[in-house]
């Protein structure tokens, strides 16, 4: 464990907290893409498929359960309690292409041809693009509540901090996972335009509006 990784994981927890807080306090899921949330549920179930069978540490065990449970809870809230506040007419990204593409990527790039390794690799590739329906939705509306924007920002920080973590582990631990690293860089690049607009607008106290 190093500070980059810990910071990344904490940013991830913060993003989940912000999202659930926004939905329950506003009693509304407006502006949040349920498609992105469904993709994250798929990501966590496939990534942590061995959560009960392979012990790494109490830290990873608890975090994995939090990520699986909170993503399902979010989807459940959006689909049931706050269904009427969703925007299905602007949440139109075709996620079957993201899922299909991730299956193909996992078939080509994996560490071993075993079920667990294939679903692990699938989850890594899917996570790298899972935010796209949310960013697409943001682009269609052209603006968003700052709380929604903070959620996406915290999620982006989580993945961005994993990059210096991999550099650190590569130098000091002789650890390098090319699949996680390449997919993580792709994911951070997807966020880069968003980060730029976030910095230009939100950091200067303005509303998040796409130029």
């Amino acid at each position: 464990m190093n500070l980059f990784r810990l910071g990344g994981d904490l940013a991830h927890l913060v993003s989940i907290f912000i999202l659930l807080q926004k939905i329950t306090a506003n009693k509304s899921a407006a502006g949040i893409s349920i498609k992105t949330q469904i993709l994250y549920s798929i990501v966590y179930v496939t990534r942590y498929i061995d959560v009960f069978t392979k012990w790494i540490s109490l830290y990873t065990f608890v975090m994995k359960l939090i990520f699986i449970a909170s993503s399902f809870y979010t989807v459940w809230l959006m689909h049931n309690t706050y269904k009427s506040t969703q925007n299905p007419q602007i949440d139109t990204f075709k996620i079957r292409y993201l899922i299909g593409g991730s299956i193909i990527m996992a078939a080509i790039f994996n560490h071993k041809l075993t079920f667990n390794e294939l679903v692990w690799s699938f989850s890594i590739w899917l996570e790298s693009v899972a935010i796209l329906p949310q960013l697409f939705m943001l682009q269609r509306t052209g603006e968003a509540e700052n709380i929604t924007v903070h959620y996406i920002f915290a999620l982006g920080i989580y993945r961005a901090l994993y990059i210096p973590n991999w550099v650190y582990r590569w130098i000091f631990d002789q650890y390098f996972d090319y699949i996680a690293t390449v997919a993580g860089i792709i994911q951070t690049l997807i966020y880069s335009d968003f980060f730029y607009v976030y910095y230009q607008r939100v950091m200067k106290g303005k509303k998040f509006e796409l130029p």
């Binding site: 991830h12 975090m63 990520f67 071993k112 667990n116 390794e117 692990w120 996972d177």
Partner: peptide
């Protein structure tokens, strides 16, 4: 190559 790969990150 190890029998099972250890994915210790989240």
């Amino acid at each position: 190559e190890p029998e099972t790969i250890q994915h210790d990150e989240l």
